[in-house]
Amino acid sequence: MAHAAPTRTRDLRLDFFRGLALWFIFLNHMHYNVLTWATNRNYGFSDATEIFVFISGYSAAIAYGGAMERQGFVLASARILRRVWQIYVAHLMLFLAFTAEIAFLALRFDNQMFVEEMNVLTFLDEPHVTLIQALLLKFRPVNMDVLPLYIVLLAAFPLALWGILRRPLPVVVASVLLYVAARRYGWNLPNYPGNAGWFFNPFTWQLLFVLGAAATRMPAALDWLGRQRRWLAPLAVAYLAFALWIALSWHLPPLDGSVPAWLARHLYPVDKTSLDPLRTVHFLALAYLTACWVGPQARILSSRLAHPLVICGQHSLAVFCVGIFLSFTGEFVLLEFDGSIPTQLAVGAGGILLMTLLAGILGWYKAAEKASQPRPQVVPAA
């Protein structure tokens, strides 16, 4: 969600695919909408969260890497922590609005299922305790796990960025070792209520964040990977095809039982909380093929068709928060009023339209504010 400073060489792929991830997250949070089949969640091991976290790491390195090189560790760290505070405040505001929406609709329509399904019952029973836990990021309603993960990753980012600017490879190795150790020993941050840990384990999900950040400082490695396209691309396609077969076997009756028992024992469960290696490799395969086939100057990125996605990606924090709020609103409409296919399509399209409209307004305001700033006058030399 950190934004790179606008430059002439801005890579619109970051904004485009971050905007796409925001749309996918919004749709995936509505469990009763046919449009979820338009997202990548049902066609492999990874989903939009991996896209979002990786691009967030990449964008954070672009946004703050130059500042750390020019202004030093302390000032750059202060800028990063200021952004952490902004995201933390946004998370708390979203938490209050989201829980209020759920509680109001549950009471207004006398349907306790919403309170239980969205994990808000504890808050209503013990608001004085639960509010403190929410401030500590230990209590979160369902679908509100991404921002706390990002807050923790970005808060720890100054040290990682300092290392990436000097020796990116050792930082990547340390990240991989932390990932392996966290999965091996079950490290996670405490949750409330219970001791299940965070839904997105920061000790494992940091891997994608660090890989995204390190990619900005390892051009030689990326160039080498690009030159290996002849054998890496077919390998990536083969793995994606394998993941597609497994994922479709979960949903399509003709493929049910097509996965051999011995293979299923090695594959399942495909753990999202601790970022299962199958998910990690699946995302990296997608990222590799995307980088091979969609260049930074691809014409589609600057087209009118791509503009809604690009502008949503450029204002990701606000769009994400509104998307979380709208996703429950949409699910409520489908469950309480009309769950027909036309209504599902209308609710999904309407939510995306509102998210895009918000991004457009923010973009217009930012451009107007920038244009209204007085230009420095050049004083002629005496």
Results as ranks from 00 to 15, higher is better:
5 A>W: 01
6 P>T: 02
6 P>H: 02
8 R>S: 14
9 T>L: 11
11 D>R: 02
12 L>N: 07
14 L>D: 09
16 F>N: 09
18 R>H: 08
23 W>D: 11
23 W>S: 08
27 L>S: 01
30 M>F: 05
31 H>C: 02
31 H>E: 11
33 N>E: 03
35 L>D: 09
37 W>P: 05
41 R>P: 03
41 R>F: 05
42 N>D: 15
42 N>F: 03
43 Y>N: 13
45 F>W: 03
51 I>W: 11
51 I>N: 10
52 F>L: 05
52 F>Q: 08
59 S>K: 00
62 I>Y: 01
63 A>C: 11
66 G>Y: 00
68 M>R: 06
69 E>D: 13
74 V>C: 05
81 L>I: 07
83 R>T: 04
89 V>A: 12
91 H>T: 07
103 A>S: 12
104 F>Q: 04
109 F>I: 13
111 N>I: 12
116 E>V: 12
119 N>I: 13
131 L>P: 11
132 I>A: 14
133 Q>K: 13
135 L>A: 14
135 L>E: 09
137 L>E: 06
143 N>A: 14
145 D>C: 14
147 L>K: 00
148 P>H: 02
152 V>M: 12
153 L>W: 05
156 A>N: 09
157 F>S: 07
158 P>V: 00
160 A>F: 15
160 A>L: 13
161 L>R: 10
167 R>P: 04
169 L>A: 14
170 P>S: 10
171 V>I: 12
173 V>Q: 10
173 V>M: 13
179 Y>L: 00
180 V>C: 08
181 A>C: 10
183 R>S: 11
183 R>H: 07
194 G>L: 01
197 G>I: 00
197 G>A: 03
201 N>A: 04
204 T>G: 07
207 L>W: 04
209 F>N: 05
212 G>C: 04
212 G>Q: 08
219 P>N: 02
221 A>P: 01
226 G>P: 06
227 R>W: 07
232 L>W: 05
233 A>N: 11
235 L>R: 07
237 V>E: 13
237 V>L: 14
240 L>M: 13
242 F>L: 13
243 A>R: 00
244 L>G: 15
245 W>H: 10
247 A>T: 06
256 D>Q: 15
258 S>F: 00
258 S>W: 01
261 A>G: 11
267 L>W: 08
267 L>S: 08
268 Y>I: 00
268 Y>G: 00
269 P>K: 00
270 V>P: 15
272 K>S: 13
272 K>G: 15
273 T>E: 14
278 L>N: 08
279 R>C: 11
280 T>P: 01
281 V>S: 06
287 A>I: 10
288 Y>C: 08
289 L>W: 02
297 Q>K: 12
298 A>F: 01
302 S>E: 04
304 R>E: 08
306 A>S: 12
306 A>M: 04
307 H>V: 06
307 H>L: 12
309 L>C: 04
311 I>V: 15
311 I>T: 10
311 I>Y: 01
316 S>P: 09
318 A>P: 07
319 V>E: 03
320 F>I: 03
328 F>E: 11
330 G>L: 02
334 L>A: 03
335 L>G: 08
343 T>A: 09
344 Q>A: 04
347 V>C: 00
348 G>P: 09
348 G>V: 06
351 G>L: 01
356 T>V: 03
356 T>M: 01
358 L>F: 07
360 G>M: 03
362 L>K: 00
364 W>S: 14
367 A>N: 11
371 A>Q: 14
372 S>V: 00
376 P>Y: 06
377 Q>R: 06
377 Q>W: 02
378 V>T: 10
379 V>H: 04
381 A>K: 09
